[in-house]
Every structure is written in C-alpha cells, then in structure tokens.
Design a protein around this nucleic acid. Structure first.
Length: 935
RNA sequence: GCGGGUGUGGUGAAAUUGGUAGACACGCCAGACUUAGGAUCUGGUGCCUUACAGCUUGUAGGUUCGAGUCCUAUCACCCGCACCA
C-alpha cells in the first residue's frame, strides 16, 4: 500500500501534468508579483499594448485571445532580451450592449459590466498572460472617467490655429479677437462670420460664446440622428435596416439634434502627415488616407435663374469639365431646395424628400442600379457662358460632403451618365473621341472639345486656368476638401461618461475642474427622454442645479475612454493628473499595438487626434500614440450543420441529404467531433431533439460545415476554457499561434490542437521519463546537437522579432524532432531551448527550468546567443535545372565558383541525358542557390 | 457604390530578397507495442501514372534562363463605411 502510493507519486510527478504545472506557476507568479512593472528602471523600455476589450456578456471565444497571445509572446520576449516591458490590460467598459441588456432585464449596467469583467478576467487568467494587473483600468470607473472628462474640457478650451497648424487655448483666441478681430483666422464653423476687434468687443457674452463655439475643438452643432419614435430612441446605423428599426421594424426618420462634435477635420492634414512616421501596414495607412479623403478641386458658384441673392455652390475635383455640365444635383436636404423649387414641381420634390427620409446613408451610396431623383424646376446658369442648367435633387448626393451640391458631367462620370440617361437629359460631349455614347469616360488625359476658351487644351492645365478665371470673376475658388467629417461625440444614452458641461441660459460652460468627476447618477429606468434625449434627462434632481442652470444630458460615445487609455496605463493610480509627465516621457509611444482592423478608422484616428491635441497643448512629448501597429486577423467560426427531414424528427447525414427535402439547422460545435456528430449528446442538447432519429452513413452522422462569424447564435463559439482544461494553456497558446500568420483571417478548427499538444509532450520527454524521472545529463553537446540548437536560436529570434509565430512554432517542432532523433538529453542544449520557448509556453518552460535545478525564474533568464560557427555548412545540394525544369540535384562545395560548378553539372549523368548531345547556350549559376542549363 | 484584404494538397499552412512549391502540423493509409487506446513509436501520403514521363499555387495573358512571388486583365470570397465596440 505504502509502496504503491510512492510509485503513484513519482508517476504523477514525471508525466507532463500540465494543469497542475500551470496552476502552480500562475499562483507562484501572482504571489511573487512576477509581472509587476516599475516606472523607474535603467533598462530600455518597451510598451506592448492590446486593444482592450469591451466586456460583453458572451465572454471570450477563441478568436479574442489571438492578438493577446501574440502581444504576450512579444512582451515576454522583450523582457528576456533585457527590456523593461509595460504590458497592461483593462476594459473598455462603457457601451450600448450593457444598456440594452438593462432595458430588457432591468439589471443595472454597472452590475452586468462588473460580472462580465469578472468572467473575462477568469478566462484571461487561465491562458497565463503576463499583464501587470495592478495597472488595470476600466473606462466606467469614476476615477478613470474623471480624466476623460478633464481631457474633454481641454478639447473644449482649445481651437485649431491654422496658421500654426496646432491647437491653442481659447484665451489666446480671445486675445487675438480683441486686438485684430478674426480677419486672420477664418471661422471653421461658419465661413461667413467676420468681425473686427471693435466688432468683437461690441458682442454680448452670448454672441461671443457662440462665435467661440465655432472655433472650439469640442463644439456643439446641429446634426441628424436616426430617430425611431416608436422605440423612443436614437438608433445606430447598424440598427436600421431598410429604413426601419431592426428591432420591431418601426419607421426611422432623420431628426436634428444639438450635439457635441470633435473638430477632427482641422487635423486632417496632420493626421495624414503623421502616417509617414509610424509603422502601420500600407493597407492600414491607405484605409486611413481614404477615410480622410483629401481631394483638390474648386468651389464654383452658379447663379440661379430668377433667384436673387443666393447662389448654388458646387464642389468639384474637375473644374476643367465646366462646359460639360448638363445639370446640377443637390442633396435632398440642401437648404436651398425649398427656395428654388417651382410651384409645378413642389409636389414631386416633397414626395421625393419623403422617400429619402427613410433611406440610410449606406443604401443611398450603394444603390446604383436604380436611379432616383426629382427636378426642382429651377435652372442654374453656367458662370462662363450663361447656359441654362436644370437643377435636380437626388439621394446619391450627400449633404455632408463638400457643399452638398455637385455639377454633373455625364460624359465624364458614370453616375451622372446613368442619371442623364434615366431622366433623358441632354449629354454634352467635351472629351471628343474618348466618349463613345455608351458609357462615361472619366479620363484626365486628353484635349477638351466644346469647351469655349479651354477648347483644345489639355485637361490638367485647363483645371488651373478655369480656377484662376473663376477667382478673377469672383464666382469660384480653389478648394481642398476632405471626405472625413467632424466626429459626432454625443450619444443619447445612459451608460457613458457624462459631459462636464452645464448650461446657463442655454449657453454651455465647463464645470469647475475641481468638481470632477461629474458622476453618472444611479437610475432605475433606462428609457430615453421624451424628445429623444438621453435617459439622464429624466433624472431631474441631477439635471437641475437651481437658478435655471442645467446639466448636459447626453453622454460621450464609446471611443471617448479608449482615445487616451494608453496614457493612463503608464500611471493608472494618479489622482492629481491624468498621468505624470515624467512617467509619460519615460514610456513614451506604444512600441507595439495589436488589435483588429475593425478599428482602422474609428478608434485609431480618434486616439491619434487626442494625442496630437495633447501634444499641441504641451502635455506630451510625442504626437503619435502608436509606433507600430499590427492587426490580427479575425478568426471565423466553423459552424456545423445538421439536416432535418422536413416535417419529421429524422436527421440525415450530410452525404445522404440530397435524397430528402431537408431543413438546415446549426448544431453546437462542442458536441461534434470534427464533422461527426455525437448523436447521444445531440439528443440531450435541446429538449425538442430528445426524440431525434438519425439516418447514418457508414454508421456515422456527418455534419455539414459552414464558415461564418463566431457567434452565440450559430453555436460555433469555442470557449478557450474548454481547451485549456483539456490540453493546457501552453498548448492553447502555441496552437493559436500555429494556426497561421497573426494578421491573417482564418477559420477556427479545434482538431489540429493535438499536434501541438504532442509536441509539448515530446519536449517533456527530452527532460523526463515517466518511469525513470529526470533524464537530463551534463554531457558536452555534439556538433549536430549544437547545430540544431543554433539553427533554432536564429530562427526563433528572427521569427519572434517579426511576429511570425506560426513559423516559430514549427521551428520548435523541428528542433524537438531533431533532438529526439539525436537522443539529446543534455542540459547545455535543453535549457537554452527552454529559454527560447518561454514566451510561447511559459508554464512548462518554468517547470522544467526549476526541475533542472536552476535558481531564479526563467522569466528573467539570459536569452541564448546565436553563434554562426555551429551552423556553417561547407557544401550544398544544388538543384540543377535544364531549361528551367528541375532535373536533378548535385552536392557541390560552397566555395566552388561558376565555371567549376558548370563543369560539374555538365558531367552529371542526368544532365547529360537531358542535353541529348546538344551544346548548352548558357549556364546560369547562382552561388548557394541553383544551377540552370539553357540549351 | 467607395475603401481594404484573401485565393497554394482532403485541411491549417510554409516558401523573409524572382531560384528545389507543399516545411511544420491535422487528417488519412499501413505497421509495431498493448488487456485496452482519443497513449506512444515507425513508414507512407499534391494530382495522374506499374514505372518513366507529365501536370500543379483562383482564371487568362505577359516579362524572365527561371514566376506562388513582378506586370496586365479577370473571377470568387471575406471585412469596414462614421451612434456596435
């Protein structure tokens, strides 16, 4: 009995008992604060950051940790390389889903958010990340959003000085106004506002503050939202489908509301220039550039026949096509539509506007097959020759871009062409032979015809000439435009940061900084206000401060807290400032930022904006937040489908389904092994399947597969906990990396995880034998062993550095396969391999490190140094091609030059056969690569 | 519509600079060990072929001694588009 227990113990000890090992080391690292990071260090710094998650109720699925594992490996690797590494984690905890959940269940968002965070944390801890949890932040924590509010006030108290291309304080602007008016600083919010110093001083406080509002970086303006009266709430574009609400199918209309904005358009050029300094993928940079959408062109004013005092201003990138303008198109929302519409056309225009009200912007842009529009009855006049041009409205022109009006040149623009054909509008050809009458030709190369004073000119110089003529005549000017719009910053929601703003007589003022944070009041009811204001409007005792002063009732959007969180991680507990200046100077930019492409244009642009403003105001010493960005690909789910014979509870296997009429149903991937359904588990999965019967093929029920987004509703989400439980965190980490390149999207497939698990077990056996215990020796390594080791060092270091983790995992496998073949159990080799492995599989590395009797944690071991001498080869097996086709290989010494190599190749039997006695025309020899013989 | 990405064996993929396509795994096939195997080990495995040969990186062209890689055209799929985060 006693003896039996002893063997059992040894047995337990020496097999790869991953769960025990992992739990032991996770506990140990926690106790020893192994991941605590100091802001004071003589080591070089490295800041490795993940895009922090929104803690959704669904929990983590295997797609989430992909990026986290990638950054964790990099952080651990840098630490081994001697860096002081900041690698924090937190939660982007404000957001709509928690609020919607609250509306449905009455549970307070603060409660559900807390619960979700706790389960996220459990899942994260399971995987063994090296986060410094003492730095955890939550955007919904008052101690955090106090500073979000404070930073908002900095944006509110700033304007963008176009002369200096930087943000300055509002007091500087007021000083300018008092001495010189706004003659040198055109008003970005309203170009028509002009005043002198005297004029400024004559304005009332209300007028002055209204003007300043047009300059502020955080400003109030009117903008349309998707208003759904039946739901009594404002909807996201996502929630509107075909003009009705996704939930309930109620009508949705545009409603104007006064809302906060960030004047990101003023930073458009800086945001473009900044891309030159950062290491993002070209694709990412292109996405941002296209989003910003800088274009050069002109604004052209058209007189309207019979209308005095108003002109139609169009923006065009092709002023040279002015004589090809056959009609103008206004956005249906354009402010002059009502004024210019004739009596006869009134009904048609009103009907059309009614139709457009129900259309989403996406639909308006995407719908090209169906041309819609209405004629206003008005005519504009060509500014050069006075030609009459009919004025139409159409949904394809958007109010928000340019001036909301375009000049249509059907011979040169396909959408204009389609419009002209559909409504039978005359098409003027100004490009000559380049236009075939069948489709538009948007060429910028060629000579203009039918074009008055620019006839015969090349298009590019014509653009310049037209602009200067327009400027001379005062009915146009050169204009640079951006597709990007100012960022809407108000949400009519509860679960977000309250604005630190109060209104006195309708004029907004910053609250006193010392009273921050403006805490989100507790509410029992999350329903919106009567007019669509946020739920806070219902909390009268919070809103009304007495003497007519009231609080802003909107809250900030999701991206408010995430725009600056990377700074707070540096100094998360500071209650004096948002982060200490010296600490920010030390940690500086994020060296590696990992997250999904879905944030390409939202979060990334906003946080770049905030960083630039803070830099301009002197709070930071850098104006780009992220030095290097890597986008992890999305892991799609691999759904499993069962086929139910219609009207029965018989389920037919995939191979036989064509013989029946079936309905396809998703089945939980967790009860399917590969594609084979566990039929017993299926019967217990849901009560309505208890009586299921199966039509099998070869005794098995085979499921269909479908690749789609990982989601609860498709039952294709795989919980990392299940896999960690079964194979261990180290296997899970390595398998996620082994799936493919970090940046590539790929479907999840659990099957392959066995291979990685086998690898770790094989590694374990290099160190320990289940029966004999530790088998590591102190013998001196052989040349072959050293070659394997150093090849691996070189490969792992290179691959880790460039985040090519899938090939690194494969290199570990090759290494362990080779060492196993060599029966290498030598400490000198194995412990170096362990250090290499630490970033990937920290638990097993630490366990074996300790078992070999090392003192101190492997987390801080010395990283192996590659030595060329162990891997240098003297010969190579050259591939030999004849006419580019590989025919044989020959081993030749590496110091052999072209002439000699050619001779050796020609003497080869196989080569001789393929030469068929002919003389070679040419022999191509690339040293160390290949030989090609051309005949 | 605009913008971005991806197409290589049965599957995930590799090939970092134009130089032996398919490394490393999964799966499958055969075998060893075993009371047993969802353990371990050995061998095989792109397609077509008995073999030699031939074919093969979405499709069609092109450049080159040589193309998965460069160029042109084209098809298919995935993602984003401003209030989801």
């Amino acid at each position: 009995m006693h003896g039996q227990r002893l063997t059992f113990r040894i047995h337990q000890y020496m097999e790869y008992n991953f769960r025990a090992i992992e739990q032991k080391w996770q506990q140990r690292w926690k106790e020893t604060h192994a991941y605590r990071v100091s802001n004071n260090s003589s080591k070089p710094k490295c800041y490795v950051l993940d895009m922090f998650p929104y803690p959704s109720g669904a929990g983590l699925h295997v797609g989430h940790p992909l990026g986290y594992i990638a950054s964790d490996i990099y952080a651990r690797y840098k630490r081994l390389k001697g860096f002081n590494v900041l690698h924090p984690m937190g939660y982007d905890a404000f957001g709509l889903p928690a609020e919607q959940y609250a509306l449905e269940t009455g549970q307070h968002p603060a409660v559900t958010t807390e619960n979700n965070i706790n389960s996220f944390r459990d899942q994260l801890d399971n995987i063994g990340f090296c986060y410094d949890w003492e730095r955890e932040i939550r955007t919904s924590d008052p101690a955090y959003y106090k500073w979000t509010q404070w930073l908002f006030l900095q944006l509110f108290d700033s304007w963008f000085n176009r002369k200096l291309s930087k943000a300055q304080r509002i007091t500087d602007l007021v000083n300018i106004f008092e001495t010189e008016g706004n003659a040198n600083h055109e008003c970005p919010g309203d170009r028509n506002i002009r005043f002198s110093a005297e004029g400024w001083k004559g304005f009332s406080e209300q007028d002055q503050r209204e003007i300043l509002m047009h300059y502020r970086i955080a400003f109030l303006a009117y903008a349309e939202v998707n208003w759904c009266a039946e739901l009594g709430t404002v909807l996201a574009n996502d929630e509107v489908v075909n003009g009705v609400s996704e939930r309930g199918g109620f009508p949705v209309v545009k409603k104007k509301m006064r809302q906060w904005f960030l004047r990101i358009t003023e930073y458009a050029d800086r945001l473009l220039e900044g891309l030159e300094q950062v290491s993002f993928s070209e694709a990412m940079k292109d996405m941002q550039r296209n989003w910003i959408g800088k274009s050069q062109g002109a604004e052209i004013s058209f007189e309207i026949e019979g209308v005095q005092g108003e002109k139609l201003v169009c923006y065009t990138t092709r002023p040279d096509t002015i004589f090809g303008v056959d009609f103008l198109v206004l956005a249906p929302e354009h402010e002059l539509v009502d004024l210019i519409t004739t009596h006869e056309q009134r009904q048609a225009i009103d009907d059309y506007k009614q139709y457009v009200q129900s259309r989403s912007e996406r639909e308006r842009m995407a719908e090209v097959k169906q041309v819609t529009g209405a004629f206003t009855g008005a005519y504009a006049l060509n500014p050069f020759n006075g030609r009459q041009i009919p004025v139409w409205i159409s949904e394809y022109v958007l109010a928000g871009y340019g001036t909301g009006a375009i000049m249509a040149v059907p011979c040169g623009d396909q959408r204009d062409f389609n419009f002209a054909k559909h409504f039978d509008i005359h098409i003027t050809n100004i490009v000559g032979d380049a236009y075939n009458g069948e489709e538009a030709n948007p060429t910028k190369e060629g000579k203009l015809v039918n074009s008055d004073f620019i006839t015969g000119m090349d298009m590019k110089p014509a653009m310049e000439l037209v602009i200067s003529e327009l400027e001379k005549r005062g009915n146009g000017k050169r204009q640079i435009n951006f597709k990007m719009r100012d960022a809407g910053f108000s949400r009519q929601r509860y679960w977000g940061e309250p604005f630190p703003i109060i209104y006195k007589n309708g004029i907004p003022y910053a609250v006193d900084e010392t009273t921050l944070p403006v805490e989100l009041p507790h509410v029992e009811n999350y329903k919106p206000g009567a007019e669509g204001e946020g739920p806070l409007a219902n909390v009268r005792e919070w809103v009304e401060l007495g003497d007519g002063t009231i609080r802003e009732t909107n809250t900030m959007p999701g991206y408010a807290g995430s725009s600056w969180y990377f700074l707070r991680f540096m100094d998360p507990k500071n209650d004096q400032v948002f982060a200490d200046r010296n600490v920010m100077d030390y940690w500086n930019q994020v060296d590696l930022y990992i997250g999904g492409t879905e944030h390409a244009v939202g979060h990334l642009l906003y946080s770049r904006l905030w960083t630039k403003v803070l830099f301009d105001l002197g709070f930071l010493s850098f104006d780009e937040p992220y030095k290097k960005l890597v986008n992890q690909g999305m892991i799609t789910g691999s759904s499993r489908i069962v086929y139910r014979v219609r009207g029965t509870h018989q389920f037919v296997s995939a191979g036989l389904k064509d013989k029946y009429e079936t309905d396809e149903l998703h089945v939980d991937v967790n009860i399917v092994d590969g594609v084979e359904l566990d039929t017993e588990a299926f019967k217990h999965w849901r009560s309505d399947y208890t009586n299921a019967e199966f039509i099998l093929e070869n005794g098995k029920y085979i499921c269909g597969t479908l690749s789609e987004k990982m989601s609860k509703r498709y039952f294709n989400a795989v919980n990392p906990n299940t896999l960690v439980e079964k194979y261990g965190a180290d296997t899970f980490r390595m398998y996620e990396m082994f799936l493919g390149p970090v940046e590539q999207s790929k479907p999840w497939e659990t099957k392959g995880i066995e291979g990685v698990h086998r690898f770790l077990k094989k590694l374990w056996r290099l160190f320990a034998d289940e029966q004999k215990g530790l088998v590591v020796t102190n013998d001196a390594p052989t040349a072959d062993e050293l070659k394997t080791l150093h090849k691996t060092i070189r490969k792992i270091e290179e691959d880790t550095e460039r985040l090519s983790y899938n090939t690194a995992v494969s290199a570990f496998m090759v290494c362990v396969n080779e060492l196993s073949d060599l029966k290498c159990h030598k400490k000198a080799v194995l412990e170096q391999v362990l250090v290499l492995l630490t970033p990937y599989a920290p638990h097993v590395a630490e366990e074996l490190w300790q078992l070999m009797g090392n003192s101190g944690s492997i987390l801080d071991a010395a990283y192996p140094v590659f030595e060329q001498q162990y891997v240098t080869e003297s010969a190579k097996e050259y591939p030999v091609s004849v006419n580019g086709k590989l025919r044989t290989t020959i081993v030749i010494n590496l110091d052999v030059e072209a002439d000699e190599a050619g001779k050796i190749a020609l003497a080869n039997e196989v080569v001789q056969k393929w030469l068929e006695g002919k003389e070679p025309k040419k022999i191509i020899f690339v040293k160390g690569k290949m030989i090609n013989i051309v005949i």
